[in-house]
């Protein structure tokens, strides 16, 4: 079963807010000067911010913010966030791989930015029965 796609807009302001909230102040997430110096195309989103947005999609699909029992991702490609009002977009889709007898649902998640996968091996297990 495929779950309805969710799209998240990501702007520079979001990265600044996430840096403050998470305590990750690595300048590759806010300084073009620094990001390009270390060989990146520009400022990129925190991998953990992408993982958090995908986590939101998962809890929204689950219908419960406290339902996630296991969640893992591999970061495959940076999410470049241009310095304009639109920023960029991350699209998240998932398929249900398994529903176990003890009320666990296993999802396989896909996250893309500009048509390219930014995560691979993204999986979550959620508790469906309350």
């Amino acid at each position: 079963m495929e779950l309805p796609a969710k799209t998240f807009q990501v702007t520079r302001a979001d990265l600044v807010r996430y840096a403050g909230a998470s305590g990750d102040f690595n300048p590759i997430h806010w300084s073009d000067r620094f990001a390009t110096k270390v060989g990146l195309p520009g400022v990129i989103a925190h991998g953990m911010f992408t993982m958090a947005l995908v986590g939101r999609a998962i809890t929204e699909w689950a219908g419960a913010p406290d339902a996630v029992v296991d969640y893992n991702v591999r970061f495959t490609r940076p999410v470049v966030v241009p310095d304009d009002d639109q920023g960029t977009e991350i699209e998240v889709t998932a398929v249900v791989r398994e529903v176990t007898e003890d009320g666990l649902t296993r999802l396989e998640v896909t996250a893309t930015c500009l048509g390219e996968k930014v995560l691979s091996q993204a999986r979550a297990t959620i508790r469906t029965a309350r």
Binding site: D14, R17, Y18, G20, G55, R56, T59, P65, D66, Y71
Partner: peptide
């Protein structure tokens, strides 16, 4: 910061209704 607006993350009463002692942190 991650746009998670569910009251369970913000309102202790909503979290308690799900059996938690206080507001629940998002998964990451």
């Amino acid at each position: 910061a991650i746009g998670a607006t569910d009251p369970v993350h913000h309102d202790p009463a909503a979290a308690q209704a799900l059996g938690h002692p206080d507001v629940v942190a998002p998964p990451t």
